[in-house]
Simulated assay, not measured.
Amino acid sequence: MLDISELSRKSGAPASKLRYYEEVGLIRSVGRKGLRRVFEPDVLPRLALIALGQAAGFSLAEIRGMLGQEKEPSIDRDMLAAKADAVDRHIEELSALRDGLRHAATCTAPSHLECPTFQRLMRIALVRQGARGRGRKQARAMSQKGGTARGDNT
C-alpha cells in the first residue's frame, strides 16, 4: 500500500491533484493511514494512463469514461483513432504555419503585406480566430444551460 505522499513521490503528481482525481472518480483510495489516504500500488499504471490521455488531449471526463471504475480499463479504440486523426490535422496546420512563417522571414517582397503567402497566412489566422470565438460562445451558452461544451479539462 502507498500513502498519498508516497504515491505523489512515485507518480510525480502533487497530492492535491491526486485528491482531485479521487474526487472526480479517476482513482480510488482504499482507506487511511492516520490522516493520509492509502492507495493500492496498481494505481500507478492508472495514473500513467491518465497522464497519457491528457497529453493526447482527452478531457478528464473522457479519460474517466475510458478507465471506468474497474481495475482493467476499457479504452475505446474508435476514440483513440479519432484523436489520432485530430492530432494529424493539427500537425498539418502547424506545419503549414511553420512553412509560411519561414517564407515570410525570407520573403523578398518590399513589405510583408505585399507578399501573397503572408496575406494567405493572415486570412487563415482570421478564419481560425473566428472559429475559436464561435467555439467559446457555444461553450458559454452550454454552461449557462447547465452543460459543458468539451467536458472537464482540469
Results as ranks from 00 to 15, higher is better:
R46H: 02
L49T: 04
V30N: 05
L44I: 14
L35G: 14
A48I: 12
G12L: 02
D42N: 15
D42P: 06
R28E: 09
I27T: 02
L44F: 10
K33S: 14
M1P: 13
K33V: 12
K17F: 05
V38M: 06
R36Y: 14
R36K: 15
R32T: 07
G31F: 02
R28L: 07
Y20A: 05
S16W: 01
V38Y: 02
G34Y: 06
I27Y: 00
V43I: 14
S29A: 09
R36G: 00
G31E: 02
L49V: 08
E6Y: 10
F39L: 05
G31L: 02
L47F: 00
I4Y: 10
L35T: 14
L35W: 15
L52V: 06
I50K: 04
R19Q: 00
G31D: 03
A48W: 09
S11I: 07
S16H: 10
L26M: 01
A13I: 04
F39T: 08
E6I: 10
S16A: 13
Y21D: 03
Y20S: 06
S8T: 04
E22F: 05
E40F: 10
G34E: 02
L26E: 02
L44V: 13
L52K: 13
I50H: 04
L35N: 13
R46A: 05
V24A: 03
L47K: 00
L2S: 08
E22Q: 09
F39C: 06
V38I: 14
D42W: 15
A51N: 04
E40Y: 12
G25W: 00
K33C: 10
R37M: 00
I27A: 04
F39H: 08
V30R: 15
D42A: 15
V38W: 07
L47M: 02
P41D: 13
G25E: 00
G34M: 06
V30P: 03
S29F: 03
V30S: 08
Y21M: 01
G34S: 05
E6R: 15
K33I: 13
K10M: 15
V30F: 04
L35Q: 15
R19L: 01
R28Q: 14
Y20I: 09
A13K: 10
S29E: 11
I27W: 00
R32C: 03
R36F: 11
P45Q: 09
L49F: 13
A13C: 14
S11N: 05
S16T: 13
E22D: 11
L47H: 00
P45W: 09
K10T: 13
S29P: 11
S8L: 01
G31N: 09
Y21I: 00
V24I: 15
R36D: 11
L52F: 06
I4F: 03
Y20F: 14
A51S: 12
V24P: 00
S29N: 05
L7P: 12
A15D: 01
L2D: 09
E6L: 12
P14I: 12
Y20V: 07
D3K: 12
E6W: 10
L7R: 11
L26H: 02
A48M: 10
I4R: 08
Y21V: 01
R28C: 08
